[in-house]
């Protein structure tokens, strides 16, 4: 059974890693649309897939956050990726099995997955 003690241990482990993040300002932000439209279209499993993939690869400079309606509800689930110094990339009609490729190609290797972007869908 999990206890809050375990969480404290997790904290100590993470604090060390946090120092690494604070040193640079190259943090990538991923925003997942979580309004009614996004949730109904399957944003929660997509969000989970992002969290799992970031965790699995132990990526320290990536923040995954929820946001409201991005405005193109028919293309949900949508995620916006903000890489410092680069233009925002909007991925649309996401499914959990598309996430590992986005993390691998875009977040780690900085190659945008053009097939999944809003430009390809339109």
């Amino acid at each position: 059974m999990k206890s809050l003690e375990e969480l404290k241990a997790l904290r100590e482990k993470m604090q060390k890693q946090m120092n690494v993040r604070d040193a640079g300002d190259d943090t990538v932000r991923i925003l997942v649309g979580m309004a009614t439209c996004g949730i109904a279209a399957g944003a929660r499993p997509v969000m989970q897939a992002f969290l799992e993939e970031v965790n699995k690869r132990n990526l320290k400079n990536v923040i995954v956050q929820q946001t409201g309606c991005i405005g193109v509800c028919r293309l949900e689930p949508i995620a916006e990726v903000f890489v410092p110094g680069e233009e925002k990339v909007t991925y649309v009609k996401l499914k959990p099995d598309m996430i590992p490729r986005i993390i691998n190609d875009h977040i780690v290797n900085r190659n945008i997955v053009s097939d999944y972007t809003i430009g390809a869908a339109e």
């Binding site: 969480l7 404290k8 904290r11 993470m14 604090q15 799992e52 965790n55 995954v64």
Partner: peptide
């Protein structure tokens, strides 16, 4: 339990 510096949104904490 986490102290002030770790967000509840961190993937490990979420899990």
């Amino acid at each position: 339990a986490l102290g002030g510096d770790i967000s509840l949104g961190e993937p490990e904490v979420q899990q």
